[in-house]
């Protein structure tokens, strides 16, 4: 059993939460300029490390808000809990963030920097 420290409600039993899987997956904005296989990286391929894993949880029977958790998939120890849209702060979780294959994937690069003309980019901001 996990005891999860909800950043809004405090420590609660795992049964109050739902797990949203891998965190920090960005939808490729330039989806027309990447291949089907690269889009599959975003849609289906998942980081599944044996060790520290960055994942999303939701306090579904409490405040119903989402947050990120850095948790070890072998010991189940929770290293860090941080807000949606933020990067982890602890060294171990930072390393897990940068070492994920997703940081090098075309899907994520297309999410960070659309290769379409500036007109589209203005529309997105």
């Amino acid at each position: 059993m996990l005891l999860i420290d909800c950043p809004f409600c405090g420590p609660r039993d795992e049964s109050e939460f739902s797990c949203g899987g891998e965190a920090h997956i960005m939808r490729p904005l330039a989806e027309n300029s990447i291949t089907d296989a690269e889009f599959a990286d975003y849609l289906f391929m998942r980081d599944n490390p044996k060790g520290l894993f960055l994942e999303r949880w939701r306090h579904s029977t409490g405040c119903r808000r989402w947050f990120n958790v850095a948790r070890d998939t072998v010991s189940h120890e929770i290293i860090e809990i941080y807000a949606m849209g933020k990067s982890p702060r602890t060294a171990a979780a930072k390393a897990a963030f940068t070492s994920s294959w997703r940081r090098d994937s075309a899907a994520e690069k297309a999410a960070i920097k659309p290769v379409t003309p500036a007109k589209t980019r203005r529309g997105q901001s």
């Binding site: 599944n48 894993f53 998939t73 072998v74 010991s75």
Partner: peptide, 8 residues
């Protein structure tokens, strides 16, 4: 199946 990833 449990809701989270694990190797434990």
């Amino acid at each position: 199946v449990d809701k989270y990833n694990s190797y434990a």
